[in-house]
Design a protein around this nucleic acid. Structure first.
Lengths: 158, 158
DNA sequence: CCACTTTCACCCACGTCTACCCAGAAATCG
DNA sequence: CGATTTCTGGGTAGACGTGGGTGAAAGTGG
């Protein structure tokens, strides 16, 4: 069983670092090697969070993007926003990573952080922002599950 | 005959642990091996309970999810809520599992717990919440049975 | 091109928490 | 009624999270 799971709270210190929860650091790929060893990719995420990908997942996303067409203006917009947020980081001896100041600002991170394991990647949230996201989302957890699994998914909200 | 059945009450101790009832621990797959041996998957369930899957059942769910795509906003919402609730646990020597604090809070678990065997999985409820769920559900047990087996099921409540 | 300032990577140290283990109490079964 | 299993409480060693200090490197201004 592999992938990132669970929900953790931790703190951002004065230097802009936070500790990746040990449970996430110890997640291994099927062959038993720790996934988060070495360099990982920190990036601006969707809905106002930060996302963290292991390096191989990052390559997969990059491949997907590179197949798109630069004459498309949505592609250019997305690329600008996407790549400019990228920050490769290596955890220190205590498993902490340093978050660039502009990402702290964009994700509105304060001292208290909420870390989510979301299978292939990890997300970092301002807890208030996450609660608001959950609370205002169209439909409850049960309803969304229903939409997803009955195939009636992803109509625009309005 | 295999699968999880029955209803049990147990207690959550000060450390956030509870004992899986022995009757459930001893349920075996058709080949005679105990299903709950080793790692089991504790997760946020629907309608405000916690759910417990054996590992193979969990893989089946994950496979179903993996066909979906992160560009779908319902998928992102569901993934966040779903995976963040997951906690793989291994029962200790005495058959107890530790419940993460945020799941205790979300399921509103107090000292008294209600454990339900629901065939492929197990559920953990705050007894009051379960009683309320049963009592407020649209239609009685008999009516729901009728709807289900005549095919007129899952219309919205109103 | 040099000197000063700031930033960051690396390391150490300490308080807290938790995974693991042991043991006694209660319940169940023959 | 005795033996065995199940349940519950608690102690302890080691892991984990957090704060901070220091030297090297990068950035800035003269």
């Amino acid at each position: 069983m592999t992938g990132f799971y669970g929900q953790y709270q931790t703190t951002l210190d004065d230097k802009g670092r936070f500790a990746l929860p040990a449970k996430l650091r110890h997640v291994t790929s099927p062959d038993g090697a720790p996934i988060l060893d070495g360099t990982i990719i920190l990036n601006r995420g969707l809905e106002g969070c930060l996302s963290i990908y292991p390096e191989n997942e990052w390559s997969a996303i990059q491949n997907r993007l590179s197949s798109l067409d630069f004459t498309n203006q949505d592609f250019r917009y997305f690329s600008r926003r996407f790549y400019s947020g990228v920050s490769p980081v290596t955890p220190d001896k205590n498993g902490r990573v340093l978050v660039p100041q502009h990402l702290i600002a964009e994700a509105d991170l304060k001292k208290e952080l909420l870390i989510l394991g979301v299978n292939r990647w990890i997300e970092v949230w301002n807890p208030d922002r996450y609660n608001y996201y959950v609370q205002q989302y169209r439909g409850t957890y049960e309803e969304v599950a229903g939409r997803l699994f009955t195939g009636k998914h992803d109509e625009p909200a309005e």
